[in-house]
Every structure is written in C-alpha cells, then in structure tokens.
Amino acid sequence: MKGFQITFFTQQDRKHAGKQLAEWLLQFAQAHGTRGATILAGSESFGRDSHFHSAHFFELADQPIEVTMAVDEQTADTLFDALTKEGVSVFYVKTAVEFGSIGTPES
C-alpha cells in the first residue's frame, strides 16, 4: 500500500487537552482512522529554538518523544484536517512510503 510515514516530535512534558501530547496524539490518530502508531522515547534532541532536550535520571519531563505511524493518503488528509481544527502545535515529518504486512496476524 502506498501512503505516508508521519512522525510527530515532542517532549514528555508537553500537554494538550489535559493529557501528555504524545499520548493524546496516539489516541487522536486512532480515533481518526489510523490503524497503528508507536510512541518512542529518545535520549536527547534539540528543536527549532536550538534548545537541547534530554532524559535525565531524576527528571524525564524534557525527554524527547516521537509518535510514528504509517497511513494511506486519505487517512493522512483526514488526520491533518482534524489536527488543524483542534489547534495542535507540533512539529512533524511526513514521508511518502510503501507499507504493508507479511504473514498472518498473531493471536
């Protein structure tokens, strides 16, 4: 199947609608037709403001977080339209990809 890999980049302490932004994005994507997504925690990053973000032993609030998904074009359009209406502010990368599954699903 042809579509897009979409990765949102945020930090552990960012919130939207009272929830951690990464968790909110995961649930929002599912509610808008995305069939799978993954949250990944990073150890260090820097953003457009050149400020470094990192996971510290005692403080994880600034830990970099990625939310990644592969979707078809229609789902991508639906998702971005809904995110725009929601007023979310988040950096993303959207890359054209081919994706699919091999074998039978695990039970």
Rank of each mutant, 00 (worst) to 15 (best):
F52C: 14
L40M: 13
A55N: 12
G103M: 09
K94I: 05
T10G: 02
Q20F: 14
A41E: 15
H16I: 05
T34C: 15
E44C: 11
I39N: 00
E98D: 12
A82S: 05
S101W: 12
T95A: 15
R14E: 14
F4S: 02
F8R: 00
H51C: 12
V88F: 05
F28L: 06
F9T: 04
L40Y: 12
E59N: 15
A22K: 00
T78W: 04
L21C: 05
L40V: 14
D49V: 10
Q12M: 14
L83N: 01
F91E: 09
A70E: 06
Q20R: 15
H56P: 05
K15Y: 10
F46V: 08
G47Q: 01
G100L: 02
R14C: 05
L26I: 10
F57A: 12
I6Y: 00
R35L: 15
E66M: 11
A70V: 10
H53E: 04
H51Y: 10
L60G: 09
Q30V: 09
A22I: 01
Q27Y: 11
P64M: 05
D72C: 06
F52I: 15
Q74H: 10
F9W: 09
W24Y: 15
G47K: 00
D77F: 10
T75E: 04
A41R: 15
A31W: 10
S50M: 12
A61F: 07
Q5F: 06
A55L: 15
E59M: 12
K85V: 07
T84E: 11
K94Y: 05
E66N: 08
F9H: 06
A61I: 06
L83H: 02
K2Y: 07
P64G: 05
G3A: 07
A17T: 09
F9R: 01
E98H: 06
Q30N: 11
I65G: 00
G87A: 04
V97P: 00
S89I: 11
S43H: 13
L60R: 08
Y92T: 06
I65V: 13
H16R: 06
S45Y: 00
G103R: 11
V88D: 04
A22Q: 02
L60V: 12
A96S: 14
T78F: 04
K19G: 07
F8Q: 00
L79D: 00
E86I: 07
G42I: 03
K2R: 12
S89D: 15
T95M: 13
A41V: 13
F9D: 03
Q11M: 08
A41C: 13
R48N: 14
S89G: 11
H53I: 03
H51W: 10
K19W: 09
T78C: 09
E106C: 09
K85H: 10
L26M: 14
